[in-house]
Design a protein around this nucleic acid. Structure first.
Lengths: 350, 350
DNA sequence: GAGACCTTTCGAAATGTTTCGGTAATCCAA
DNA sequence: TTGGATTACCGAAACATTTCGAAAGGTCTC
């Protein structure tokens, strides 16, 4: 080979050590983040390391292949108690298995001994060579997510509470269109007194669904009656129960209810049963999420389906792309919702 | 210290290598599961390794401090689609958060690209310093579990398919007693024609429940009618649907059904609804598992509650104990079940 | 059957990591 | 002030792992 490259000798621990005026073990400690090195020494070694472009064997190995075996992605969820969470997680796990990626799942809900600070967590992720993180919880604020971004750790948020900012990559669904579709479905059936029972009030997705609901009403010339909008709940069964009790106090009862999530709808369903109110004969009910649990209830629940598993897959895919250093087309992925009319909606009683 | 221990020199790679008649690098490769070692050489080295009781630094590290930060436990589940699985997993995740342990969850169900051989998987666990594994799936046979045992990787199986063997640590519930309690509950209400719809036929837990059912019947002098025992299903909703259709063909219809799991019971419930058969007026129904989903159905489901979350916790606790090298009191933990009578059971129609 | 080429297996040497003990700085009680 | 105790920091030596090429044996081609 005549065209031999000038061949700058590949930096080794020893060469770096000599240049920095310390021993090889000391450099090893700095590279591996051990504690017993003084700040000054560490800084000096780091400088030489940087200048020489040294890569530890670990770094060399992981640099090549993000997305293959050995890649670990962290998944942070609130609690595993809603059908929504379960299906999203399922999507992530399925895709992870197919992509040969490992997933480290942790809950932030109750009992977590010492929710570590984002800084700490980010540091540990770097140490352990984690490829990135998927967040399905409200545990991290916008500012905290920045901590990860600063360290170049790929993060994707599913259904963020806050409106999507340019700095955070997020995955969601077309909530506004979905809320509109659900309401139109009820309008088409002939309903005019339609109530909305919402989830977490400030949540972006809840807002979007509510505004889709209002848009549909107004487009048909139906006045939006604030009495029929129950808010202040959460995306949980109990909120459905409480919300329905709230609605029962009104005089012209609504003939249909649009629930902000399937779990809420199921709460409504069971509470209606307790009061001897039949669904859909006496009142129509439509949920949001399109969970299996809704499909399996009696009567089966009409709903606006979000592709929950697909959302999980999309989130993981996006994390892996970022980890590989690819440029993302968009910082916000919105997947389409579609209406599923099942047995819990019908024309209003004459 | 006068009582100094004779101090057999700690085995090192070199000493093992010499004894096995190979070089140190070769021993290293065997220990770390590299490919380029002939089977004969590997076997020879493994023998010496075993005899000398050599421990790789990785093993030494994980042996010392299991249970604190940085500990990673793998959790292998089938698919995240049953209430049972979800609650067990939730228990594991909650306890993991409290114990500051990380959990790596993987599914073996569909789509898993290349279910790695247990050998491979065990090797990777050692490489990555994983503390142990919890198995909630039928993906591993008894023999395959041995592969982990041989490498001293702590493994705990939750509700194993096979009868608990002395070699595998397992966590379960008092299935026999639970099956008996469920059946006695129905007998106490006055039922005599009681059907059983089972899950996976060979599964240990299913067998135990079935035999508890039969024991209760016999103890009261009620003949066990094989027609009323539907088997060949799985612990899934569809099996409840199919099983109920099966029972509908019989002439003296059963007045009560004991389902092998809540998911099965929910299938029965929805199918009964489709046929206009009311629960519990026309037929009583009791499940097994005591899942939240059962509690939330309409009518709410009577069930034999297993402490599912507690089982998850117990499994994780046991893995951590093993990882710390503690001696286990028992290789089989059985947690108590208890009957929850709700709205789906009532005296038979006169 | 000779040669080119590949594959498997292994170890020497190069490289990286850990253990452990020494040194010096600091702290503390007398 | 002094002497012991404690701690932080560092490197020599011991240990482990990886790289890379050599040797042995196969397979294919001509």
């Amino acid at each position: 080979m005549a065209t031999k490259i000038p061949e700058r000798p590949k930096p080794t621990l020893a060469s770096v050590a000599q240049q920095a005026g310390v021993s090889a073990p000391t450099v090893s400690k700095v590279v591996n983040g051990r504690e017993d090195v003084s700040p000054q020494t560490r800084a000096r070694v780091l400088a030489v390391l940087e200048q020489a472009g040294y890569q530890s064997p670990l770094q060399r190995r992981s640099a090549g292949s993000a997305g293959g075996a050995g890649t670990v992605v962290e998944v942070v969820i609130d609690v595993l108690d809603s059908a929504y969470m379960i299906e999203v997680l399922n999507g992530i796990l399925q895709f992870a298995a197919a992509a040969d990626v490992e997933t480290l799942v942790s809950v932030t809900g109750r009992g977590a001994s010492d929710v570590p600070s984002p800084e700490r967590r980010a540091q540990r992720m770097l140490d352990e060579g984690r490829a990135g993180m998927i967040v399905v919880t409200s545990a991290f604020s916008e500012a905290q997510l920045q901590a990860f971004r600063r360290r170049k750790i790929p993060v994707v948020v599913i259904d963020p509470l806050n409106p999507p900012s340019a700095d955070v990559v997020s995955v969601g669904a077309t909530n506004w269109a979905g809320g509109k579709a659900a309401t139109e479905h009820l309008l088409d059936l002939g309903h005019r007194r339609i109530a909305y029972i919402g989830g977490i009030e400030k949540a972006e997705c809840n807002q979007a669904r509510l505004h889709g609901y209002m848009a549909a009403l107004m487009a048909r010339g139906v006045t939006v009656d604030p009495q029929y909008i129950v808010s202040g709940g959460r995306f949980r069964r109990e909120s459905g129960v409480a919300g329905f009790q709230e609605l029962l106090k009104l005089d012209p009862l609504p003939t249909a209810i649009f629930a902000g999530s399937d779990t809420i709808a199921l709460g409504v369903l069971s509470e209606a049963g307790r009061h001897g109110i039949r669904v859909p004969e006496d009142i129509s009910l439509i949920g949001f999420d399109g969970t299996k649990q809704g499909a399996e209830s009696v009567p089966s629940l009409s709903s606006v389906a979000q592709p929950l598993e697909e959302m999980g897959r999309a989130a993981l895919r996006s994390v892996l792309r970022q980890a590989r250093g690819e440029v993302l087309d968009s910082h916000r992925v919105e997947l389409a919702t579609h209406l599923i009319a099942r047995d819990s909606t019908a024309p209003p009683a004459a």
